[in-house]
Write a protein that binds this DNA or RNA. Structure first.
Lengths: 116, 116
DNA sequence: ATTTATACATAAGTGAATTATGTATAAGAC
DNA sequence: GTCTTATACATAATTCACTTATGTATAAAT
């Protein structure tokens, strides 16, 4: 994935950036693989980020100045830690509130109750 | 659109089918333009379905046997009414529950409250 | 010794939607 | 009476996020 177990992978489109930003906001400095694990855990195995989605998305956010990186050698293995820049932090906030607007709007159209 | 005013049009991807099925389930036999108007109204102007998204989506659902059609001449103008088949009805139900699962899962990952 | 987990990366392909066009009738503005 | 807007359908070209597939390499587990 960013796929799977969720029956409608299409629904997930557009949420990846929001998830990356918010998870980094909540958990601080993290490396790619760690983010994937955290998301898997938080989603109760429902959201499995694949490398093909994850890494390009992180690179893009970095290129846009929303994330900053720090590469660390763990023994002989490379780890690239990502954290939010100040712009990243404010975008995280914005994206989450957009997501809440989005589900409220769709909820109205679908006429469903959105209670936790 | 299926776009616009909503700041993150990306989020909308994958919800169009669900919306079409559920709106048809709730409002019965409708034609394309009418569906677009209804969605606009239900979303308080936030979801504006464009023809380029709407008609191909309806055609696809029809081709898959989820919708049936009835073409009517209104004076000299054509109107194509769509309604759910029984498979369409059951898919509508499934899609809505998938959507609820989806927002619950994403809500957990984003650690947000989803109260109506 | 072999499989699985950790850890990164990128290229080719898909498919839903966007953007752009096209056709045509009816109503409303002025 | 003409011009604009609304009604009502349709489809082709393009975009771009994500999927699928592949590649490299170390470390742990069985």
């Amino acid at each position: 994935m960013y796929k799977s177990i969720m029956h409608s992978p299409e629904l997930l489109k557009g949420t990846l950036q929001t998830i990356l930003l918010k998870v980094l906001k909540d958990h601080g400095k993290m490396y790619g693989y760690e983010i994937a694990q955290r998301v898997k855990e938080l989603s109760d195995e429902r959201l499995l980020l694949t490398e093909g989605a994850l890494y390009p998305a992180l690179h893009k956010l970095e290129a846009e100045g929303l994330l900053k990186t720090e590469t660390v050698m763990m023994g002989k293995r490379v780890r690239k830690y990502y954290s939010l820049t100040s712009e990243g932090r404010s975008l995280a906030k914005e994206r989450v509130s957009e997501f809440l607007d989005f589900i409220k709007t769709i909820g109205n159209v679908l006429q469903v109750e959105l209670s936790g």
